[in-house]
Design a protein around this nucleic acid. Structure first.
Lengths: 301, 301
DNA sequence: ATAATAGTGTCTTTCAGACAGTATAGT
DNA sequence: ACTATACTGTCTGAAAGACACTATTAT
């Protein structure tokens, strides 16, 4: 920000009349929202527990480019609106929810991202409790849908070179609901060469997902998986009262692996408080309901 | 990105003549670089080892606002240049170094950040080995200087409320070299209210540091401290060959606390390879030189 | 009784922290 | 001999993983 060209550039930008205005053309800046929730899926048997699934909100594009494809909700950052403000506004518009967990994920600024013009997108991740989702989506309504989302590593190749190593991974990203099925293949190349580590993420194939959003979604899932292990963000996906099995299911669906009950309970013991209520009428032993214990820890980056 | 206004907005932006061009005024986008290195400090006694210090590169502002104050190196993102490309270019211009570790830190987009106009800054952190720093700074030269940097928690207050808790922390950020001494006080408020965690960082006082860069620097140090514990980024600060004590000193100066030798060595054992060389003539037992073992792990977010 | 879930006890291994001890150069 | 650093061994307790066991409901 301390370049020689600062002054020239900024004063010209301010000059509100005449041709010179856009001498320094600016990239457009948008925010893109990854809004995750966890919901129950079909209960097959009267005594079986329902399965949980991880869901992401997408909107259908009504204009080219990528018309008819699905994109992350988002929009332009207004001139008099902070980045985070824009994200909060976007969240409110799409889900009618406020005061929810939100964190900045990553800013995507490659040149060819948007075929129309130069767009830099700052992505935010939000976690919402599906019980508080009153409306599916507000006025913009009908074009916003929840998709069951999963990302699996399906190929991995490690090469040791003379000055380092290369790890190539292929992830399969799947998004679907009753009507639609979207998918993508994301390649992640992690290299270390002369001590210098680098991670590159690229889209190999993307079907039905607009822009580079498949990459953004995959990144979001990766971050969510990492963070759920050492923070308490998972509770943002839970209702006020929940059973420990439900909590475990949320962890399992995000981490995409099974956890051992006894160990899981030990691990989260300090983060929850027992109540006197029970979930009954389930065809098996009733389970105690718990709530989040906020005084436990504290927000972490 | 899928708003109704997309098309209108983007086509107008493209219309290269007349007054309408800037109907949708765009924020300016910059990249700001946090370039860290570790150097040796005064060897007091012939047998004592030199102390290590963490250093950060800053440039002196030659124009208002904040004229004469120190800022992070950085500059505008060009229209045909990716965000990361811009960061790489900036790094090359300032330090003449390429192929170095770099990661995106955070994007700062508050409205009043820059008194002139709306500026959104994407910050990147780089770690360089001081031995490879041939020139202090290239052509822009004389106005770029290294500062010894440290950030200490000096006040902490925890309040448990009915629906959550609040943790208030004050950090003292200090930057100095032979000629200058800069400082700032950063307030970090971590709240949990109804499961929703939030972290807010604000500047209480800033002396000699331009814009909101004190906040950015403090955030960078926090991130560096966290990441050094679970990744191998510290090796980017080391020369080709180093002693384990030197490596430990780097960890200590970043974490700002002493580590026990035996435990430290156990922890980093898998990341290094022993060589046959020794550091001698030091007035005490010679120490074996090690190098980084790249095949050990792999880049992590 | 049975299916299905709820919940606990404990063994083992791994890892982090603490500390004490031995080793070896240069002056 | 002495100083300052180099390097190793081992005790401890905490945490993670694995697994077996007991408890309780609706039908």
């Amino acid at each position: 920000m301390a370049e020689t060209s600062d002054e020239q550039r900024l004063t010209k930008t301010r000059d509100v009349s005449g041709y010179q205005i856009n001498q320094y053309e600016q990239p457009s800046v948008t925010v893109d929202m990854l809004i995750f929730t966890v919901t129950n899926e079909g209960k097959t048997n009267y005594r079986k527990l329902p399965d949980k699934v991880l869901r992401l909100l997408l909107v259908k594009r009504k204009d080219p480019p990528f018309i008819g494809q699905w994109a992350l909700p988002g929009g332009f950052v207004k001139m008099n609106e902070g980045l985070e403000e824009a994200a909060i506004r976007e969240l409110k518009e799409k889900t009618n929810i406020e005061n929810i967990y939100m964190e900045q994920l990553y800013t995507w600024g490659e040149v060819g991202r948007d075929p129309r013009t130069r767009v830099i997108s700052c992505s935010y991740m939000s976690l919402v409790d599906s019980a508080t989702l009153t409306v599916k989506a507000s006025k913009h309504a009908d074009d916003a849908k929840w998709f069951t989302v999963s990302s699996n590593l399906y190929q991995e190749q490690k090469t040791v070179t003379d000055r380092g190593m290369i790890l190539r991974q292929l992830y399969n990203l799947t998004l679907f609901n009753d009507e639609e099925k979207l998918s993508a293949v994301i390649k992640i190349v992690k290299t270390i060469e002369n001590k210098v580590a680098k991670v590159e993420r690229s889209i190999i194939k993307t079907e039905g997902i607009a822009f580079d959003h498949a990459k953004v979604i995959d990144y979001g899932i990766t971050r969510l998986r990492r963070k759920i292990e050492y923070t308490d963000i998972a509770f943002n996906l839970m209702p006020e009262l929940f059973t420990l099995t439900e909590l475990q299911q949320v962890y399992e669906v995000i981490l995409d692996r099974e956890l051992l009950k006894a160990n899981f309970r030990r691990k989260i013991a300090d983060m929850v408080v027992e109540t006197n209520e029970y979930r009954k009428d389930a065809g098996h032993r009733p389970s105690k309901l718990f709530r989040f214990r906020p005084e436990w820890g504290v927000a972490r980056d």
